[in-house]
Amino acid sequence: MLFAAIDQWRAPAPPAGKVAWLKGQVYAHRGLHGHGVAENSPAAFAGAIARGLGIECDVQRSGDGQAVVFHDWELDRLTGDTGAVGDLSAAQLGKIVLTGGDDTIPTLGATLAQVRGQVPILIEVKSRRDRRIHALCLAVRRVLEGYRGHHAVMSFDPRVSRWFARHSPQTVRGLVVTEEGARTLSGSARRHLALWHARPDFLAYDIRDLPSAFPEAQRQRGLPVLTWTVRSAELAERAAVYADAAIAEGGGIG
């Protein structure tokens, strides 16, 4: 009861109309990738749009302060290049070909221009706890200014949601959560502390942790719960019961 009361005080539920569009969707995790189509690529996003799927993508800051769409901190896994993404400018990154196709690393601006509000988009802001987040969040907000399609930002880092709550309150913001087996009192306390700091409009919860009392309590009081990464029909069935929308890939999309 104490946690519930503080939740309502420190992280009040958003207006229902602000977050209604999040529900009932399937979001293609890093776009509709696979079979020669790279994750977080224009081709993957085009595939999701063609299927009428929402899009989830990853964004980090380039060396010259622009928001670029790429998951890993290093280039090695997803390209033929090596080194840190943050060491290169957006223009340099835009010349690097993603493995498995002809696409290069896009900026968030180019991605939003491609989507054009045709489907909703979730933007996971990649951060590191040892780095300040102001410049990163500002780079994302600048690109989002004037974008009229349904969109939301989210992050594992509670500071990101908190930043948008303070500096861009009209932007729908989410907290990404994984319990990692910590269903103890201390684990629950950490999740509530993260919630209170983040002040999110929704949660994006690890499907491996569902069902769970924490997200269900937040869902009951008005925070939509999305779940990731749904990779099979079985997990899709679980998501349909315990969440409001699925972030899916492969067999989880159907």
Score class of each variant (00 low, 15 high):
A38Q: 07
P200F: 09
S188K: 09
G146C: 13
A90T: 04
P224K: 08
R190N: 13
T111H: 00
T227D: 04
R142L: 05
G94P: 06
A13N: 05
L93S: 04
P211M: 06
V143P: 02
R183T: 03
A245P: 03
E145I: 07
E74R: 14
R162E: 13
L98H: 06
D102K: 08
R141M: 01
D7T: 15
R129H: 11
A46S: 15
L235K: 03
V241P: 00
D7C: 09
W196K: 07
G47T: 12
V69S: 02
Q92W: 00
T184V: 09
R173C: 09
F156K: 08
A248Y: 05
P14H: 04
E234A: 15
R231F: 04
E74T: 15
A43L: 12
Q218L: 15
D102H: 13
A44D: 06
L185S: 09
A152C: 07
W228A: 00
A194V: 02
F164L: 03
H197K: 15
H150I: 06
S188I: 08
L2N: 14
Q92A: 13
A194C: 06
M154E: 10
D81I: 05
A48S: 15
V172F: 02
V26F: 05
Q220L: 14
T111F: 09
Q60E: 13
A84K: 11
G24Y: 11
P15Y: 01
G47L: 06
G24L: 01
R159I: 02
Q220Y: 01
I6F: 14
N40A: 12
A28G: 11
R166L: 13
A91V: 15
L210A: 10
V176S: 13
A50V: 07
D72W: 06
I96V: 12
D7E: 14
Q114H: 11
G252H: 07
V68S: 01
V176C: 12
G31C: 08
L235C: 05
R10Y: 10
I121H: 00
A243W: 02
H29G: 05
R191H: 15
S41K: 01
Q170G: 08
V69W: 06
S127L: 00
A189V: 10
